[in-house]
């Protein structure tokens, strides 16, 4: 059996994942990084993107927003504003939502609306990229 470490993915409302895994690839803001058992203590802010959990043959990809990673000798903890399993996401739906968001951005009446619409577009584009990868 391969070496494992403890991985927790926690959102403000509840713990989304907790268990022993072999390898986690996280979308750091400064670049993607991988975590294997015995990783040195490390803290990094994550950009919105896909987090990959590898365990033996299975790979699970989770889209994480507002994430933060904390590696200690006890394992990896990722705190995220929200997370959704990419397997549960409908590609067509995301494309449609992205089109709507881009229209909203074009129709934005003031700075505040523009900022919100811009954030939504960026978020959906990141989701789409994660799905495509």
């Amino acid at each position: 059996m391969a070496a494992t470490f403890h991985f927790s993915l926690v959102a403000p409302e509840r713990e989304l994942f907790s268990g022993e895994v072999e390898h986690v690839i996280a979308p750091g803001e400064e670049g993607q990084f991988g975590v294997l058992p015995g990783h040195a203590p490390f803290m990094a802010v994550l950009r919105p993107g896909a987090l990959t959990i590898l365990n033996g043959a299975t790979a699970r990809r989770i889209f994480v927003r507002g994430g933060f990673a904390d590696v200690t000798p006890d394992g990896l903890t990722v705190l995220a504003d929200s997370a959704v399993d990419l397997a549960d996401v409908d590609v067509a739906r995301v494309a449609a939502d992205l089109r709507d968001a881009e229209d909203d951005l074009k129709d934005a009446v003031d700075e505040a609306h523009r900022r919100i619409a811009q954030a939504k577009v960026a978020d959906l584009r990141a989701l789409q990229d994660a799905l495509a990868a």
Binding site: A40, P41, M43, A44, P73
Partner: peptide, 13 residues
């Protein structure tokens, strides 16, 4: 605080 067993945190950035 977590026990880092003598190691120090690396912060990115």
């Amino acid at each position: 605080a977590p026990d880092l067993r003598g190691a120090l945190y690396t912060y990115e950035p």
